[in-house]
Design a protein around this nucleic acid. Structure first.
Lengths: 189, 189
DNA sequence: CAAAAAAATTGACCTATGATAACAAGTTTG
DNA sequence: CAAACTTGTTATCATAGGTCAATTTTTTTG
């Protein structure tokens, strides 16, 4: 296992791949660890090699909203802060012991400048994320909580097995009581 | 007015700028025109030079959800379809006579390959869009309809002046009746 | 500018989900 | 393995926002 796996499938020379992978640092976290906390300076984005992370936002009423789960092969960060070199507005916690490869923004920018194929790779990665977020906006606007729960189960069966129901509820934007009612109704049917 | 204005502020040689602007085509639309329709092949993304566009999704019950408005200096497309060269799942309509510069996906990909500064520009543009969408997801999940309406007015005062209330309602994900009640309440206060 | 069409408002009623509280089930740890 | 804690469920009641239908206001057009 090495960061090289991240780039399998892109046309890039071995020398360039070495340049890139040299800038990743492997870091390990334990279940319950806070990887990034509200107000921290956001230096890194993380590639999840194994384990499970959760990025969430806490509102004035201390209610949590899960923005993203991250499992194998996902990238995780507080991207708004990461992109604009600002302080974190999100928290990232480790839900399951994890091995991550982290990359600092300035280093990645330098690599992108030097290695055009990497720049293209990163652009397409963000395009994919943009597309997923658009889909999520539409889903929150137009689907009922039950429909969104079913879509979540269909889209992320592995995540459902790992995380708690209250994490899923906070991803769907409903209370844990509502999710419980939905689950009961679905079980009956 | 020429597509060159799109790239003011990026470090790019005049020769490269010419290469890029040569690939934009100016197109004009009238209020009410459908620029892109459900099922169309999505070839272009559009830079709005003037006027106002709206991208929206229609669900099974014929209810519309506005994903994005586009005014001067915004880029508009059905991005999921554009990124993946798929058929449109959205409709784009012209809300106010518009002059657009359009760019085809394959041409832009070629230009990005040849001009690294353009690739970086495009990546940062998508990063900005990603960040805005994340903010919108959080806002839909955590804010009331009234809070979202107030935020919309604060964020897009120019758009509010141009578009109909039912467009705003469909952006906020509420009915036009609800928006009307919210407006009444705010007017009273 | 009058008629028609489009947009916005209002009222009455309904429903999905939230809030609160109590409790049950599951999991961790001394 | 029992106590303590965490997670999930259930019931009751409250409410934001939806639905439907009628009406008023604004805009467009012949």
């Amino acid at each position: 296992m090495s960061p090289a796996e991240i780039f399998k499938g892109i046309a890039i020379s071995p020398a360039e791949l070495d340049l890139i992978t040299a800038e990743f640092k492997e870091v390990k976290y334990k279940k319950g660890d806070i990887i990034l906390d509200l107000g921290d300076t956001v230096k890194y984005q993380y590639y999840v090699q194994s384990g499970c992370l959760r990025t969430f936002f806490i509102d004035e009423k201390d209610k949590e909203y899960t923005l993203q789960f991250g499992i194998k092969d996902w990238w995780v960060s507080d991207y708004t802060a990461y992109f604009y070199s600002r302080k974190a507005i999100m928290t990232i916690e480790c839900l399951q012991d994890a091995t991550l490869y982290r990359m600092s923004r300035p280093r990645l920018e330098t690599l992108c400048r030097d290695i055009p194929a990497l720049e293209t790779f990163m652009r397409k990665k963000v395009e994919g994320g943009f597309s997923m977020l658009q889909k999520r906006v539409l889903s929150i606007l137009s689907d009922s909580a039950e429909e969104r729960y079913l879509a979540f189960l269909a889209d992320y069966p592995e995540i459902e097995r790992i995380v708690k129901n209250y994490h899923i509820a906070s991803y769907l934007g409903i209370t844990t009581e509502s999710l419980s009612r939905i689950r009961k109704k679905l079980a009956r049917q």
